[in-house]
Computed example of a mutant assay.
Amino acid sequence: MKIVIQEPVFLLSNQKCNFNAYNYSFLVNYATGIFTRSKKKLAAYIAALSFHGINPLRFNFYLDESELSNIDILICFNGKPYEKLNKMPKVGSFLKIMHIMDYADEPMLSNESLRDHKVDLLMGYTDHSKYCSFFKYHYDYEAKVISVPFGAGKRFYKQEFQMRYNKVLAIGAINDISNGTSCVSTFFPNEKYSHPIRDYIRSHAHNYKFISSLLPTEREEKNKNIDMCRELQSYNFFVNDLSIFNFPPARTYEGIAAGSILVGNKSPVYEELGFVDGTNCILIDSIECNDGIELLANRISNIDINLIRHNSKILSERYTHDKIAERLNQYIMSEIL
């Protein structure tokens, strides 16, 4: 089976900081070749492979689209399908798979490019064609999205901090989407921020002693200079927000890998990932209201933290980057080919 990765630019970055390092794991363990249209990029990829301790001779390298005629699958993990670097060849009988990444950026242009270049399947942070109304409206890929979660890097699995605050940590970005000129604000006219739960907690955390907020102010999108790993390893719970796009962020997996217990709103998105309320997480109908916060406080005070954390840690082992790459390969082999 000849599986080729198009423009693996992730090779050129520090893998310890790669939120999507399943792409690196997939290339190393399952790919047979690399495709680039640039000789300069080819040299950079070869050097990067050597730097990471991988023998470049393990791979076939392709510099021209005509050389791809005998491959089985071409995969691009980069998102932004409209950019020249990521545009897949229009010709060829091989299967084309593209990770759509942050699909809210230029959605109409992205969908047009995907169709124009005859991309067969997409990868997403979950099956966006099932769970995201924005995606369903802008993309012609119903039932053609492979769920590929963020997962968590190895550093989150190292338990360096034993003492934890018995509080709920609120952390992460909050994007203002109220710019009237963007397609996101047009599609969500009644929403001001990307993450409603985070926004509510940002405004009300001072009223609840069991919540510790490290969320940005309304003048910022991110709270900079935070050691995410250290913070998640320092709290018994963390609040998770699927956002208006209804997909699980990287925090979902980083939090449970770090030994913190996920708190969030009930959703089939969580069920699909293996989260079970009261077993390995706490899920309620709606956190972003006073009744929801009070219910959360009651639930937290009446659970066996050690048991739920134990179950949560077991679940987290499914979301190492190596495991995600393995399941992606299994899916391709069993469901597609």
Rank of each mutant, 00 (worst) to 15 (best):
I171H: 08
K167I: 01
I211S: 00
N175F: 05
F161E: 07
A173D: 09
A170K: 10
F161L: 09
M163A: 07
I197F: 08
N175Y: 10
D176K: 14
K136L: 13
A152C: 05
F210A: 04
E160W: 02
S133F: 11
N190Q: 11
Y208N: 05
L169G: 03
H204G: 07
S182P: 10
Y165C: 12
I177F: 02
S212D: 15
E160F: 01
A205V: 11
S212V: 05
V168E: 02
I211K: 00
G153T: 04
E142F: 13
Y200M: 03
K144D: 09
F156K: 02
R198C: 02
Y193S: 02
P189M: 10
F150V: 01
E191D: 14
G153S: 11
G151D: 06
A143R: 15
V148Q: 05
F187N: 08
K167E: 12
V148K: 01
G153D: 03
H206L: 13
P189V: 04
G172M: 09
K154P: 06
H138Y: 10
D199L: 03
H195K: 15
H206W: 15
Q162T: 14
I171L: 08
L214M: 08
D176G: 09
D176L: 11
R155T: 13
I146C: 06
T186E: 04
A152V: 05
F156N: 03
Y157T: 12
N207G: 12
E160Y: 04
H204I: 06
F161A: 10
H206C: 10
Y165H: 15
Y139T: 09
P149D: 00
S185A: 13
G153V: 04
Y141N: 01
D176N: 15
G180W: 07
F134D: 02
F150Q: 04
F135W: 10
V184S: 07
I197A: 01
G180E: 14
G172W: 01
Q159D: 09
Q162H: 06
Y200H: 05
S147K: 14
V168P: 01
A143E: 13
T181D: 14
K144H: 08
F188R: 08
V145M: 08
S182M: 14
E191T: 03
V184E: 02
K144S: 11
K209P: 03
F150A: 05
E142W: 07
R198Q: 05
F210P: 09
R164H: 10
S178A: 10
G180F: 11
V148F: 10
A205Y: 12
T186L: 11
K154T: 12
S133L: 14
T186N: 13
S178P: 08
K154E: 12
N190K: 01
D199I: 00
R164L: 07
I146T: 07
F187E: 11
R164V: 01
C183V: 15
M163I: 05
F210M: 08
P196D: 15
N190M: 08
